[in-house]
Write a protein that binds this DNA or RNA. Structure first.
Lengths: 278, 278
DNA sequence: ACAAACCTTTTCACTCAGCGAAAAGAAAGC
DNA sequence: GCTTTCTTTTCGCTGAGTGAAAAGGTTTGT
């Protein structure tokens, strides 16, 4: 039971450096050099050097006490990630308006692997009741956004997910493939998904897919923690937001994040492509 | 004029790997292997290997066309950064409420080096008028949030900034040390800062410092793009938000991001500190 | 259909960058 | 004042990382 939080058998230099970064997590956002070394499974001297270099590039920052924490540079890079730069950025105004309309928690999620990830969550409640953080991975089969994503995914993908064990989170979680499958059909027909206490007792949600050129890029959801709330009332606003966002994303397709073809550059000199000439 | 966007003379392996990551920016969020190599100033074969490893750790992701982009992992790490995990997370509800109250653009900024950085910006306007993005670095002397940060910084720091050339952005920018200095005194007295077209013509702002245990940790600002708006009306809400956040941050000091002393672990076995025993 | 120009991927022998044990300094704890 | 635990520096050995070159793909133009 000797705990080695992150892969200790890092081989290549790069892998080692990444292991150092990976040593941080939600519970340990700040570490001393030796904690860092232990968690990365590397000798102190090695980590000392690596951390030094990472710090130079501001991939790590040190606080007043000399402890290491992930650096601003990483935060800045996170902003350049398609998830943030393309999705969150364009989605934000729609989420804000939606939140303004219904005054409930509004969330944005995408698919990643066999899970959904929360990309943004807006709550004006100052005292947050221990709900999933941004960046949290949540099951596709047991949440509003999850089911919205699943229902509009390519059939092969949905089948693959259905084939996996459907973890039970509450008595309400749907763990039967057939009924889940039937529900997905229903969701496709309605254009939105619902979830009642399937993931967390006491919380209900409605969610709609963001369909860009026929593929789900994300899902927007509204969560309420009071069970008496009539979620149906929010559906029109929700759909409006989801469709608004979808259209926006379609418009932006050719710009910063062209998804298939590159913009044909005149003379191949579009700044992206510095001429090695001379 | 042969453009080498990012430092080509990367020495250590780690530095090379980081150079690969640093090759991405707002204008170039997606790059092909060879673009990447050119921008990083490294041979293709080298980048091929490095990028491969980075991809394994999801520090890079590839889109359908095989192009590289910064990966989810980086985004996730950005969330663990003190800037996000500690500040933005706790600030969000306050910003939302503020935005709800005044329906103007609300922003959160911190000091970094000789600049301020926008950490969050809430606009419900779908058509954003080309304003500064999140992550953008803005001058301390010419913006509302900037001046709020500056006015409540340690004297030595403020002096250092004043000693640097005060770049002029508009005819309204204050470039005279003496008058800026006088204004800072004024700001300290009022408890909030104002900026009228000093950075961008047509936009006015009010901003308040977030003072945690006497030091400025951040500043909250309200920006309006109509000059007729009476910004004074927002000041009470603004101050309430800033103070609310400050108190919240004070409360949280001992928790996730203890700033000076570590929690004393019984037997040194607190999970953070895996025993290398056996 | 062909060629030219661009991409990505693989191979391989050389060598220098990165390694980490160990020792020296600092700082905190008792 | 002594012990423990941390950070920082040194240094000689060696294998991991290098990058030129060649092979294999894909797209563009005529």
């Amino acid at each position: 039971m000797s705990s080695e939080p992150y892969k200790s058998s890092a081989k290549s230099v790069t892998a080692r450096a990444l292991a150092v970064l990976a040593a941080f997590d939600v519970e340990n956002p700040l570490l001393t050099l030796s904690q860092l070394a232990r968690r990365a499974g590397l000798p102190v001297a090695t980590v000392y050097r690596l951390a030094g270099e990472l710090e130079d590039g501001r991939f790590l920052d040190r606080d007043s006490a000399g402890r290491y924490g992930l650096g601003v540079r990483l935060w800045e890079m996170g902003l350049l990630t398609p998830i943030h730069g393309r999705l969150r950025e364009t989605a934000m105004p729609f989420l804000l308006n939606l939140q303004y309309d219904c005054r409930e928690t509004v969330q944005l999620a995408v698919c990643d692997g066999t899970n959904a990830i929360y990309i943004e969550k807006l709550t004006s409640e100052v005292s947050v009741p221990l709900q999933s953080r941004i960046g949290a991975r949540i099951p596709l089969h047991a949440t509003g956004v999850g089911k919205a994503l699943l229902a509009f995914s390519p059939e092969a993908f949905a089948d693959a997910i259905l084939a996996m064990p459907l973890t039970r989170y509450t008595p309400e979680t749907i763990t039967d493939r057939r009924s889940l499958s039937r529900q997905l059909v229903q969701i496709r027909q309605n254009g939105y998904a619902q979830s009642r206490q399937e993931y967390q007792l006491g919380s209900t949600s409605v969610a709609a897919p963001v369909l860009v050129d026929g593929t789900v890029q994300a899902a927007i959801g509204i969560v309420s923690y009071s069970l008496r709330t009539d979620m149906a009332q929010y559906v029109p606003s929700l759909l409006r937001a989801a469709e608004g966002l979808a259209r926006r994303l379609e418009d932006a397709l050719g710009n910063a994040y062209p998804s298939i073809s590159e913009p044909t550059s005149e003379h191949g000199a579009n700044g992206t492509d510095p001429m090695p000439a001379l």
